[in-house]
Amino acid sequence: MCKQLTEKDVCEIIASHQASKEKLLSILLDIQDASGQNCIVEEWARVVSAELDLPLTKIYDVITFYEMLSEKPRGKNIIEICKSTPCHFIKGVNIVNIFEEELCIKMGETTPDNLFTLQYTSCVGACDIAPVAKIGDEVYGNLSKDKIVDIIKSYREAAICQK
């Protein structure tokens, strides 16, 4: 859907972090952002391994440990719904149900157009506006059915514009 990430792009990302081993997390997050699939495929993990002179197992140790990193392709937009107690016990709306209905997918799934993946997250530190969902780096709070419908619509429209 968007331009394919090349080895050159990956190397540029690594260079932008001075190919520093301690910047591994930032490097992997940036590659994932640029991947268009919200994941780090083995091909790129191998490039990182070679450029940083770290064993491939170590790269995978890190990718599989951290919640925000994925080795499997995901939707362009990850919708993360907070399930920690300050959000979970807010009454009135079941935002998981609303997202599932609006996107026609179940928790953990990706829409057929690869635009959205729905998943849970632990607290994102926005409990004052619970219940919240985080999409990319944006946090949306005080969610109601109408708000959720509008949010999804805005992401769909943005995707059409990009095409």
Binding site: S20, K21, E22, S26, E67, L69
Partner: peptide
Amino acid sequence: MTGAGAYVCGENSALLNSTEG
């Protein structure tokens, strides 16, 4: 330095390991 979603990294020694990549 950025985290990538791991509550345990708030523990100071885990945080230092994570800071080292």
